[in-house]
Amino acid sequence: MRDILNDLETGRLLSDPDPVRRAQLQMRTPTPKRFYKDVAVAAGEGGFVVQLDGRTVKTPGKALLALPTERAAQLVADEFAAQGETLDLASMPAYRLVNTAIDGVASDPQAVLEDILRFSSSDLLCYRAEGPDALVRRQNEAWDAVLDWARAALGARLLLAEGVIHLEQPREAIAAIGVHVGQRAEPLRLAALHVMTSLTGSALLALAVDFGELDAETAWAAAHVDEDFQAAQWGQDSEAVARRANRKRDMTAAAALIDAIRS
């Protein structure tokens, strides 16, 4: 279920009991050449659709790719319009996310919800460094306000631990988070929430973005406090920088889709 956007690997079968995995496998096709000139958004069955040379886009699972708002459809249309001679799915995070939501999450939203709750039971923000003091301060500055917000807005009072040894969180806190995630069970929103959760390691950061408490940039920075501290001490290689840029692109797309579908 995790690595929800890892949909460019070599697939085996197009049928899988996991709804997200099934949607990912359906998207694993050779890189095609661009076959269209014009990209447009139009009102259609089930909302707004993307049209390529007048033909409506469908998902890899052959479902109609329809979005509830024009802004959401425009996010996907812009990705198609930006393509060069070949289609680079890695550069189309909104399109991939919408496919995953329609072909996978819609058939079993409960599985995705439960995975988000598994993240919350070991949320990144609850595991604090024992030292050095500079890192501890950075974690406190980036994370404490989010935990305070979760307690006040979600009713989730989570416990903190030093180090990486697993800490059992109160059942009441996880249940409170579950209530709010359950209110976001619409497939597109839930898929976007899951992407942000898996990319940051924190259901609280994802929910804070969904609620408008944090923007995606601030949440992304908060999720990488430890990594940035280590990079400042030891530097980082070009491959790590590239991987992080790709993941941030997916995070930004997920946040943009949430914003677009509720406007």
Results as ranks from 00 to 15, higher is better:
35 F>Y: 14
101 A>G: 10
121 S>V: 01
113 L>F: 14
171 R>P: 08
150 A>C: 05
147 L>N: 04
60 P>R: 07
24 Q>V: 03
88 D>L: 10
252 T>N: 12
142 A>L: 13
172 E>L: 07
56 T>Q: 14
119 F>W: 15
24 Q>E: 14
70 E>I: 02
124 L>T: 08
35 F>N: 14
147 L>H: 06
245 A>I: 05
224 H>E: 12
193 L>G: 06
194 H>D: 04
113 L>W: 15
215 D>P: 14
70 E>L: 11
229 F>V: 03
173 A>Y: 05
65 L>T: 09
186 E>P: 00
177 I>C: 01
262 R>S: 12
25 L>T: 03
211 F>P: 00
34 R>E: 06
101 A>V: 06
206 A>E: 00
216 A>D: 09
201 G>V: 07
234 W>F: 12
137 R>W: 08
29 T>M: 10
59 T>A: 08
218 T>K: 07
253 A>P: 15
85 E>L: 10
16 D>R: 10
33 K>P: 09
52 L>F: 09
220 W>C: 03
20 V>P: 03
90 A>F: 11
206 A>F: 05
62 K>I: 02
112 V>T: 14
52 L>Q: 08
232 A>E: 14
16 D>P: 00
200 T>V: 05
175 A>P: 00
225 V>N: 03
180 H>P: 00
53 D>I: 08
109 P>I: 09
206 A>Q: 05
187 P>E: 02
149 W>N: 11
236 Q>A: 14
93 P>T: 07
92 M>F: 02
254 A>W: 04
188 L>D: 01
109 P>K: 08
199 L>N: 11
261 I>F: 06
217 E>D: 13
168 E>L: 05
60 P>F: 01
82 A>M: 06
210 D>A: 15
36 Y>R: 14
143 W>K: 07
215 D>W: 12
110 Q>K: 15
8 L>Y: 05
47 G>T: 09
54 G>R: 08
89 L>A: 12
73 A>R: 00
239 E>M: 09
57 V>K: 00
248 K>S: 04
195 V>I: 09
259 D>H: 11
64 L>I: 15
25 L>A: 07
71 R>N: 14
129 A>R: 10
59 T>M: 05
32 P>D: 04
77 A>K: 01
228 D>P: 10
236 Q>T: 15
198 S>T: 13
50 V>N: 12
161 A>N: 13
17 P>D: 09
95 Y>I: 00
170 P>G: 02
158 L>P: 09
47 G>A: 03
119 F>G: 00
214 L>M: 12
80 F>R: 03
196 M>H: 08
134 A>Y: 02
258 I>L: 15
194 H>I: 02
38 D>T: 10
35 F>W: 15
182 G>F: 01
92 M>Q: 09
169 Q>Y: 05
